[in-house]
Amino acid sequence: MLKIENLHVRVEDKEILKGIDLNVNPGEVHAIMGPNGSGKSTLAQVLAGREDYEVTEGTVSFLGEDLLEMAPEERAREGLFMAFQYPVEIPGVSNTYFLKAALNASRKHRSLPEMDAVEFLKLVREKMKLVKMDESLLGRPVNHGFSGGEKKRNEIFHMAVLEPRLAVLDETDSGLDIDALRIVSEGVNSMRSDERSFVVITHYQRLLSHITPDVVHVLVDGRIVQSGGKELALELESKGYSWLEKTYDSTAAVMA
């Protein structure tokens, strides 16, 4: 599904990612954890195709294609979705109109007929239940005037409608209260399948007690310093990142 090899990324003059290797198979959920400033969000942005991030080395393939060669909208149409840490407001553009345009852009790309308003509304109603979204949010402008929690739920709702092959959730849990966290997690869990993979980026373990990952990676200073099963998240929770940072620093020191 997603294969990252030796990925180096810099922003302006600063190297943020210093050689990432990651292999996500279909159906897997990978969690990427790490302290602030470790490069977690940078990784998400690079996958989504944000400018400002310069890939200096390495490759990323998505469904066998060179991801880095694709424009952001092509990546989306090929089935890559990113739930934004800070969803953007678009005043005056209704959530439904926006989503319909998005879905039809992808369908057109896959040579499927565009969905008409009636079909689309039916689909949307069904997906809204997944994230227990209020119908009034449909007619409102995209994220405009939404609360923090509503915005995050709206991201998951977008994901549910667009049905991506790979979803990257960038700190979707931040700013959510416990109920919202549960709703968002249930939405994600209901979408897990053998064909769909997730990369869940989070600072805290608490999301991972709702969404059980297959693999947990710990990102420190632009490198994945440890990977393991779901127990790794729990270990981090009790010991904190400083434990790994120290281990990693000493390893680095020894190797040097």
Binding site: E73, R77, M82, Y97, F98, A101, L103
Partner: peptide
């Protein structure tokens, strides 16, 4: 805003128009 639209599969021209 444009990047957000792009990430949902909407190209830049349509995004601006929208």
């Amino acid at each position: 805003q444009i990047f957000y639209c792009n990430q949902r599969g909407i190209d830049t021209e349509d995004a601006v128009s929208m």
